[in-house]
Amino acid sequence: MSEVAELVKEEKKAEPLFSKKNRKLISNPLDSDNPITVQVLGICSALAVTTQMVPALFMAGSLLFVTVFSNLFISLMRNTIPSRIRIIVQLAVVSLWVIMVDQLLKAYAYDVWKQLSVFVGLIITNCIVMGRLEAFAMGNKPWPSLLDGLGNGLGYGLILLLVAFFRELLGGGALFGFKVFEAIGIKYQGNGLMLLPAGACIIVGIIIWVQRSLNGYREAH
């Protein structure tokens, strides 16, 4: 018996760092298992911080940082966490990283930090972070957990930037604060709907629509 177990262990060790399975951990959340458009998690911040590209970019980066490191550390600790108090332990770990991001932004990107206001702090309650810890990091090894966090953070950031792209372009005629339409000589009247959270909701809806028709999604009846 022990021989068989060792064999299995040998095989697992032989798995390359970027095996097909591990690459899937990154690529799935980008499309077919996207945290926002498929799992419909983290919507509140996606609506709140996407009026412009710059805050959306920082928010995406912050969340990426938090998911990667909380996933990694929870995975490292997973065998020592008593399951009864696991949520509070997860929260403690997440809050550590959130506070670090918060302080970093405050120190080096104060304007953006002010624009993001409570939403950096609210990463701690972001469903994506907690969801990945519960669903993945608690039952997987550190390396796949790190990749999973990376994939989900990127999937979140991708949608965030996509939404912010359309909202800033259509709402203010700009990208990263650069007036695109004025630069090419078109007088552009900003679309006020895009600056409202309702506009973000509509854009997320359109992204889901496009994604589903590309993937051939059918509602289960």
Partner: peptide, 8 residues
């Protein structure tokens, strides 16, 4: 409603 909120 679209016009009302987009181009008030």
């Amino acid at each position: 409603a679209f016009l009302y909120f987009a181009y008030p």
